[in-house]
Amino acid sequence: MSLIVATNITKDYQTGDVTVRALKGLSFEIEPASFVSFVGPSGSGKTTLLNLIGCLDKPTDGKLMVAATEVLHLDRKQSASFRGSNIGFIFQDFNLIPVLTVYENIEYPLLMVQNMPTAERNQRVNALLTAVGMTDQKDKFPDQISGGQKQRVAVARALVTNPKLVLADEPTANLDHKTAYMVIELMRKMRDEFGTTFIFSTHDQKIVGEAEIIFTIEDGELKGKENKGGGGNG
């Protein structure tokens, strides 16, 4: 069964008296454990689409199933709970919580969202710290580590709840090439290790090549899909 099923989804934005259609009837499916990239120029609708899949926003029209849940009808609280249980986020600017250490940032979703017992929580956080190679930095605060390290922490935080899906909007945009490849490689390794579906958006052609399924979006329309050997069909 597909992890994501999008059927003819559209998204309109109101700018003054003008209605702008950001997404124009997109339909696709993404299978579990896929490593997917949405590519396209700035303003093409990548971020809008990721926001819809991540239940941060709602489509104006169409049907969107994520992890067998019709997300269109979730209210604010249900959306938050759904995200906390099923989706991890990796942001372009890392968005780590500055007053929490590396360890505490990774621990945050387990502690504040899932209320997981201490022993299990510690085990999960330490496993992720090891997986992303940040164990020796665990007591540092975000302003004491590099951009690449921050993104590794963000990957660990996104994965710590064992989500079905991780969404990463331009995760490498603020990183140099070498670090960007390392982060993408880490994401793929995590997919292999945990079976999590990764969907990331990018306009960096070199990074795009790392994805197994590539969706191309232009002007809010799905222009193509390239399957390089992963799951998903649309």
Partner: peptide, 16 residues
């Protein structure tokens, strides 16, 4: 505001 957005996106409930 961005921090609030981040913790809300992660799934922190409005009450918290």
């Amino acid at each position: 505001i961005r921090e609030i957005g981040t913790i809300a996106a992660i799934g922190t409930l409005p009450g918290k």
